[in-house]
Design a protein around this nucleic acid. Structure first.
Lengths: 246, 246
DNA sequence: GGAACACGTTCCGTCTAGTGGACTTGATGC
DNA sequence: GCATCAAGTCCACTAGACGGAACGTGTTCC
């Protein structure tokens, strides 16, 4: 493995949304390398156009990365892009994480990373499930037109009018807050937290974390944040348009 | 300057929309380096997660680049992103290239790269111009609502009803074909070719190439393609959404 | 106004680590 | 089963990356 390359990539990676521009010193500290070495790497990256040097001598990522990313995006499927995020989410939460999409009036699981705990939720990629139960389904429902919701209720549910009103109220809330939490809905003893993901081409996906309710109670808010953040990140990546003059 | 780094970046750059996945051999040929050296670079890039290796042993750009690009996008303004494209367009066409955006009922030039010819169009970044004359203005108009167009005509023009009908017909055509070409409109003896650029956040821009009509006649189609392609590329880059759960 | 400091940038002798030709492995085809 | 081709490994060689020290410039603080 090439050391300079790893170091150089570390340089690129030390930029973040919070710190999009950094000075030589900051960077050399961030990657724990002498100034000289860092400087040489920076000079090369600037020369190649991957970094730009700003007036105040600090450095920032440049447009060339966007060009590459646009190529990457085209050649990758949703699973390729989502998988590392699911990995991260599963490891951070310790629970099972999955991504699903709408398929007609059902949702289908595209990919999942299972919890490492022996007590865990098992989800099967490829599984096609109804929308009326579970957090994932509710997230999708919350984005559908009223007429579509009616149709789903009609075909999948057996609700009284009271249930219907309650469901619709819940959906409005879910849409507004940007996530759904359910307990004992699809699987007894399980809790699920789901958040929507949007891509440039209008497709919507849903990221969900599921596990035994007992492990959710005292950290629901933290888990919720992790799920919505992962969803936001994915949305950000998928939001890249693929070209065309519009 | 670090040689390995430059070589490694060359590896990344040899991927393209046309060829998003490449084999070791193809890459080593593309960058004219021995297989061994190329292999080591590839292994490092795969290890760092910037490339992925597919089933058929070929390589492709990976999602990590998208993460970086998303950071780059946030820290860059439209000018930073557009400038290299204007440079390229100006050098490929030999004419002056500019990017502008709407500002109320006017258009304002954000950035320009001038032709190297001694006979050239001069455009001034920052200049605020009416929409009714010139290809750029027409591109913007073509995307506006009818009521807005009426307002612009009322405030900027002195047209008979005939002119108005002709203009609107032209705008429909421009919107449909995705570019505008004008001659002798704003500047006598000058031709302009303009194409729209769209970004994720709903902002619209316009890329324009202008120069003496005599240099446009026999290569208008070629120039048109260059302008629309540059616009499409920019749209692609700007289409990257900046996050948020939607 | 000058001294001390901070930070980017350049220089250069040292020796690490990147290089690439030769080799192995493994798959495909006749 | 042998030939062919490409991916991947090995290793001696030396190019070139490394980083401590020096330099230059701009800023702060007595």
């Amino acid at each position: 493995m090439i050391r300079v390359l790893q170091r150089s990539l570390a340089v690129l990676e030390c930029f973040s949304d919070e710190k999009p521009r950094m000075s030589l010193q900051e960077i050399s500290q961030a990657i724990s390398l002498p100034k000289t070495t860092t400087f040489r790497i920076l000079a090369t990256l600037v020369g190649a156009g991957y970094l730009i040097q700003l007036e105040n001598q600090s450095y920032g990522l440049s447009h060339k990365l966007m060009t590459l990313a646009s190529i990457a995006q085209k050649s990758l499927g949703i699973r390729d892009i989502a998988h590392p995020h699911l990995e991260m989410l599963a490891s951070k939460t310790g629970e099972t994480a999955e991504i699903s999409m709408l398929d007609g009036d059902y949702r289908v699981c595209l990919d999942a990373v299972e919890s490492k705990s022996s007590l865990k939720s098992i989800v099967t990629p490829g599984a096609r499930l109804p929308l009326l139960h579970g957090a994932t389904g509710k997230v999708f429902l919350s984005r559908m037109k009223d007429s579509e919701i009616e149709r789903v209720i009609k075909s999948q549910g057996k609700p009284t009018e009271v249930d219907k009103a309650r469901l619709k109220k819940a959906l409005v809330k879910i849409k507004k807050q940007g996530y759904a939490v359910t307990q004992n809905e699809r699987v007894r003893g399980a809790t699920a937290i789901a958040a929507p993901v949007f891509s440039h081409d209008g497709n919507a996906y849903c990221i969900t974390v599921t596990g035994p309710s007992g492990r959710f109670e005292d950290r629901e808010e933290k888990l919720r944040t992790m799920v919505t953040e992962a969803a936001a990140q994915l949305s950000s990546l998928l939001g890249m348009r693929l070209g065309g003059t519009g």
